[in-house]
């Protein structure tokens, strides 16, 4: 119990004294997971929409793959990305292992199927007649897709939130491909693991609370956008 109280106290001390290291770690977490979410939003929503609107052989198989990807374990992604980025691995020439960029790559791989899967379901659940109606009113195919995406805005933003939630809380891949390097690739989750290992439970608690606050803040912003009056 003491540790929880002490942790909450520490969290506020660290936040309000603007502890430079903790602020840096928090900012880096937001930057990395924000970038990964942004990239996965592009890939996820576009591919998800494309799969939802088209019929092609093997479609069910593709959808099954995407849905499986939604549960991709971060450590597995971390291991694969590590092996690919090794100096002597296939992408070693990029010299990218143990950098923040490597974490963005791993987190994008984790978040993309989540966004894709939910987008697919969202677009597919729109009434089929809506498409016909839009086309009948003279819209081009591209305009139709754009209207459908706007129509499914609620679940699509939920997809983005799920993707962000998946990566901001992820620790296995960040640890493996980022290396938890002080002042460079240390994010909130890896710092929490390290401080727990060091026995600094109060600081670990404080970092967890900051992580929760960060996730909450981002979701409040996204929810604001999601819940705005829909244009009619």
């Amino acid at each position: 119990m003491d540790i929880i109280v002490e942790g909450i106290k520490q969290a506020f001390i660290l936040l309000f004294t603007l502890d430079r290291e903790v602020l840096g770690i928090t900012w880096l977490s937001l930057k990395i997971s924000g970038s990964a979410t942004f990239l996965s939003m592009f890939i996820g929503v576009s591919v998800g929409t494309a799969v939802a609107l088209n019929q092609f052989p093997g479609r069910r198989f593709v959808v099954s793959l995407i849905n499986t990807g939604m549960g991709l374990p971060p450590v597995v992604v971390g291991l694969f990305v590590t092996i690919f980025l090794w100096r002597n691995g296939p992408f070693g020439f990029l010299e990218m292992l143990y950098t923040p960029t490597a974490i963005v790559i791993a987190q994008t791989v984790i978040a993309t199927p989540i966004v894709m899967g939910i987008s697919l379901a969202a677009i597919q659940s729109l009434p089929a007649n809506l498409r016909l109606q839009i086309l009948a009113l003279g819209a081009t195919r591209l305009q139709m897709v754009w209207i459908l995406v706007k129509e499914a805005r609620l679940p699509l933003l939920a997809a983005v939130m799920a993707g962000f939630g998946g990566v901001i809380s992820e620790v296995g891949a960040s640890m493996m491909v980022g290396g938890n390097i002080k002042g460079y690739s240390r994010v909130l989750t890896t710092a929490t693991v390290m401080e727990t290992g060091k026995g600094n439970f109060a600081i670990a608690m404080a970092l967890s609370i900051i992580l929760l606050l960060l996730a909450f803040t981002v979701n409040v912003v996204l929810t604001q956008i999601q819940q705005r009056d829909r244009p009619r």
Binding site: S35, F38, P100
Partner: peptide, 13 residues
Amino acid sequence: LVLVFYAAPATAA
């Protein structure tokens, strides 16, 4: 979001 994205590689490499 673009700002956030482009800021990330700036700290890298």
